[in-house]
């Protein structure tokens, strides 16, 4: 059953159209969420806690009914055909959903039975996923003795038992130390290389930037922006030169900002106290003019910084706040 993944006529692996969820108390967790994920893509839902990412994901894995809109996974409707959807997807929950009294292998045996794998096939599959996530040497130890990173690996192994075509991961590296995070990222890249479509939620900008082919920025239950990290960054229009003036020159900030706005190659200037963020087409050609404007206005510089737009600039631009101010 070869499925061709190229060509625009192929149905997307995941399709959400106008999904909304209002909880019985009246809280709106998601409103008009729409996106499509192509086969083989890693797609990220990026947003702060409580933005509606997990709600969206729970609808897609069929454990939560949407209040409005519809969603399809591999062409199957998540409300109408939940059992068929469950058969084809893997799920890695946000919490360490581990039974600490069972060994790693027992978790996988349980999951294999729930996916109705025949015993002989299950044993082979279990060995395969254990070595894929690098947990084979700890497979027969009870999960109580696992570290956070090992529990996460077991979570992922559980999600891989059904050989899913689509894998859903809720905050795959939340609360992990740096080394474990990097390892989990490697596993995710390896899964992508095997052709698995992955939808993950994250509130880590670097995770979205490093792993995802495309992301949807979600805030307050709505999609605020969507695209590949580089498109989103390029969409902001140019690199950023950031000038910090000496606090004594606070009164001159406005004048300087006006002077710089007139220069060629300057797209926008925003000020916050004694800091000016200047968006420029090319820093190489604009920097001399900016610096001469500083001298002409008689300002003293305390600090100059130049950077390409980062995903946090994108997040700030679309939501009006930084992802970590809550």
């Amino acid at each position: 059953m070869g499925v061709t993944v190229s060509g625009p006529a192929i149905a997307p692996a995941i399709e959400a159209a106008g999904l909304s969820k209002v909880y019985p108390g009246g809280t709106t967790a998601a409103e008009d969420i729409s996106f499509q994920v192509g086969a083989g893509e890693v797609f990220g839902l990026l947003g702060p806690n409580g933005a509606g990412k997990t709600t969206t994901l729970r609808i897609l894995i069929t454990v939560l009914r949407p209040s409005g809109g519809h969603a399809r996974v591999l062409g199957l409707d998540v409300v109408e055909q939940p059992t068929q959807v469950r058969q084809l997807i893997g799920y890695v929950p946000q919490e360490r959903a581990i039974d600490r009294f069972l060994t790693g292998r027992e978790h996988l045996e349980l999951l294999a039975a729930l996916y109705h794998l025949p015993k002989a096939h299950a044993a082979a599959r279990i060995d395969e996923v254990l070595s894929l996530v690098g947990l084979a040497h700890k497979a027969d130890e009870v999960a109580r003795n696992y570290s956070g990173g090992m529990k996460r690996k077991l979570d992922i192994a559980c999600g891989l038992i059904p050989s899913p075509k689509v894998l859903f991961m809720d905050e795959p590296t939340l609360g992990l130390d740096v080394e474990s995070r990097l390892k989990i990222w490697d596993h995710i890249r390896e899964l992508k290389a095997r052709g698995i479509t992955i939808l993950l939620t994250t509130n880590y900008l670097d995770e979205a930037d490093q792993l995802c082919d495309r992301i949807a920025i979600i805030d307050a239950g709505r999609v605020k922006a969507m695209g590949s990290p580089s498109e989103l960054k390029a969409g902001l229009g140019g690199d950023v030169v950031s000038l910090t003036l000496s606090p004594a020159d606070l009164a001159k900030v406005e004048g300087l900002s006006q002077a710089i706005k007139g220069q060629a190659g300057v797209r926008a200037v925003s000020t916050k106290q004694n800091v000016l963020d200047i968006r420029v087409a090319s820093p190489e050609s604009s920097l001399p003019a900016i610096l001469s404007a500083v001298t002409a206005q008689g300002c003293r510089l305390e600090f100059v910084e130049y950077h390409r737009p980062r995903l946090d600039d994108v997040f700030l631009a679309y939501t009006g706040r930084k992802i970590k101010d809550e």
């Binding site: 454990v63 799920y91 929950p93 581990i98 996916y115």
Partner: peptide, 13 residues
């Protein structure tokens, strides 16, 4: 509470 139930419910049982 620890999400295990949701994991079970995401399987085709």
């Amino acid at each position: 509470e620890n999400g295990f139930l949701e994991r079970l419910m995401s399987t085709p049982i």
